[in-house]
Design a protein around this nucleic acid. Structure first.
Length: 594
RNA sequence: UGGGGUGUCGCCAAGCGGUAAGGCACGGGUCUUUGGAACCCGCACUCGGAGGUUCGAAUCCUCCCACCCCAGCCA
């Protein structure tokens, strides 16, 4: 056992002991001391370290195909690969699996790199492209042909499918399967030279047409595509398939653990076959279950449909589960990394509740978001005994979770805006906010009492509240010890900055919209109320200087951020990242249900 | 009715023959100038099912059931 392994072993034992100790009743582990759950991949790596299988090395890789945007499911893989490498003092390569020019584009390689960087991972100069290996892959194909392990097949795509057989019936061999090596060599060279049209022939591995594993029934290695590749241009007209390219790319880079999702488990025998036949360095492929998140879809095909058919405003629509969307929505990289760590890694397919993601988000936002006040659905309030034209400067705490964040001054005057939901003319039983005759506290300001209600003469709608304030309660405390049951947020009408605020809800109404049972299309479950635009909203003056990328908590209303795309200095736009937990709203909903 | 996987609390998840961790959610309480946060308490006699081995089984064996993946010249 290497010294490094011994240290790790000890650390692991210590952390286990710590957990056990806690179980015995010490209960010292708080949320900030959270220890990530052990998982089978970590155990495999640990075993390989102990046995010296890869010389004590750990080199993982994150290999996206540049054919779309990254989403939260990719984040799990990114965190796993980079995280494991970091944990064991290894490295993680960033590789674009760009073997299919008809689907790929530089637009995607750029967005993917930006997303990974944003998530907080650094690949240094370890940036690779499968297309960089086209030459080597070609030579290896020639080697396989010479060994009688590959042949050029002229069967059409349809014929290949027919010859492949079915799940229960074995396939049959292609009439071209037993060509001579010399013939195959010449044909393959001519494929490369562009002498055949697309689809005229392919290079296939010669394995076993009767294998119960369909991947082993003479899989295609190369196909002809007379298309420009975003990196190699027109240098090639034959392109390797994933199965042929992936393992060898891993081998070239010296990857130790090639971590992929469960659907590749059936491909592992093929992954191993190529490496063994070629007699080259052999990484270990390990499969884990991909992430499924409730109330959204995580398939490129479905996400693309949402974008193309205009159900969302683009890949970075704040309702999308893409990293671009989530980022614009105001999610933090820390929250996502924490989420990925805490959901664990296993082989069992599950559906993680989006509420857990939101929990991780709030946990992070709560400790860093600056508190401000903003009224989303304004109700005008006039303080009858507050002198006209007078302005009080009140001191407010920027973040109660972080004293270092300091305080700020907020102007208070005769006309204010309060949240409409904070007033009820006929209050429900457990409602203890403002109502006629009732007194409440305005945060950091004064106690006010509702003495009158102004209604629209035709609709009967409440359009203004008349209140009085108690000057003795400045700052929010009553000298006589008088108590109030609610503290409301507010904004001074004369000083408020106007903004548009976008409220988001889950994109789908069904927990697992992608399930596709009974042929139900996922679009049938789109939530018609996933976006609500509020305008005008009135925010405290400090928000005029709001910065994109800075999380704010509008007190009592939730976490918000400036929309990096649509907001302008003269027309502010904020996105609601998440609501606050709301016991009152919950009791209302429970009441409805019960 | 071929092959490969997976089934532990509503959700995620430890556990690897010694008598069911933890988190989320949920319920109750303390505190509170955010009905936020924080803190405290509660929440699987039972591990897909049925047999078997064993002093002892979620862990080993047998059979059964359910769900997921594979028939791209996609990755």
């Amino acid at each position: 056992m290497s010294p490094r392994c011994k240290v790790m072993d000890t650390l692991l034992k210590l952390s286990r002991a710590y957990i056990i100790q806690n179980r015995k009743g010490f209960r010292q582990m708080t949320k900030t001391e959270f220890t990530p759950p052990p998982n089978f991949i970590r155990n495999i790596v640990l075993d390989d370290m102990k046995s010296g299988r890869f010389g004590g090395r750990v080199l993982t890789r994150f290999p996206p195909e540049p054919n779309g945007y990254l989403h939260i499911g990719h984040a799990k893989s990114i965190c796993l690969n980079f995280g494991l490498a970091a944990e064991f003092g290894g490295l993680c390569n960033f590789r674009f699996d760009d073997t299919n020019p008809s689907k790929e584009d530089v637009e995607y390689v750029e967005s993917i790199m930006a997303d990974v960087r944003w998530l907080g991972f650094d690949w240094g100069d370890r940036l690779y492209y499968a297309s960089d290996y086209f030459n080597r892959l070609y030579q290896w194909a020639v080697q396989l042909i010479k060994a009688g392990k590959a042949y050029v097949d002229h069967l059409s795509a349809d014929e290949i499918r027919e010859y492949r057989g079915t799940l229960t019936a074995p396939g049959k061999e292609s009439p071209y399967r037993n060509r001579t090596v010399a013939e195959n060599l010449e044909l393959f060279e001519r494929m490369r030279a562009g002498e055949f049209v697309d689809g005229a022939c392919v290079l296939r591995a010669r394995i076993d047409m009767a294998s119960p594993n369909l991947n082993l029934r003479d899989p295609v290695l190369y196909r002809i595509k007379k298309e420009s590749h975003h990196r190699t241009g027109d240098r090639w007209c034959i392109y390797p398939m994933y199965d042929y390219a992936h393992g060898q790319s891993d081998s070239i880079e010296g990857i130790t653990h090639s971590i992929c999702t469960m659907e590749y488990e059936d491909h592992r025998p093929l992954y191993d076959w190529f490496l063994d036949e070629l007699g080259i360095y052999h990484p270990r492929q390990i499969e884990f279950a991909r992430l499924n998140l409730s109330y959204t879809v995580l398939s490129k095909r479905k996400l693309l449909k949402l974008v193309e058919e205009g159900y969302v405003a683009g890949w970075d629509d704040p309702r999308m589960p893409t990293l671009a969307g989530i980022r614009r929505r105001g999610y933090t990289p820390e929250a996502i990394r924490n989420f990925c760590e805490r959901i664990g890694v296993g082989k069992a397919e599950g559906l993680v509740d989006v509420q857990f993601l939101e929990y991780c988000l709030r946990e992070d936002l709560n400790r860093r978001a600056l508190r401000v006040m903003g009224v989303l659905r304004p109700l005008r309030v006039v303080l009858e005994n507050f002198p006209e034209g007078q302005v009080e400067e009140l001191e407010a705490v920027n973040n109660p979770e972080d004293p270092a964040a300091g305080t700020r001054k907020i102007p208070f005057s005769r006309v204010l805006y309060l949240e409409r939901d904070d007033f009820m003319e006929q209050p429900l039983p457990k409602f203890y906010r403002l109502a006629p005759g009732r007194e409440v506290r305005l945060r950091y300001a004064f106690f006010i009492k509702c003495v009158g209600v102004v209604k629209d003469s035709t609709t009967g709608e409440v359009i203004e509240l008349r209140c009085t304030y108690d000057p003795a309660t400045r700052g929010g405390g009553a000298p006589d010890g008088r108590q109030v049951k609610a503290t409301l947020h507010w904004v001074s009408a004369d000083h408020a900055v106007e903004a548009e605020v976008r409220l988001y809800d889950r994109l789908f109404t069904k927990a697992n919209p992608g399930e596709d049972k009974d042929g139900q299309d996922f679009r049938a479950f789109l939530n018609p109320k996933s976006l609500e635009v509020l305008k005008p909203c009135y925010l405290e003056p400090s928000l005029a200087q709001a910065l994109p990328g800075t999380p704010y908590q509008f007190e009592r209303m939730g976490y918000f951020c400036l929309d990096a795309k649509d907001s302008r200095p003269a027309a502010l736009v904020f996105n609601r990242t998440a609501t606050l937990r709301d016991a009152w709203a919950k009791s209302l909903n429970a009441g409805k249900k019960g």
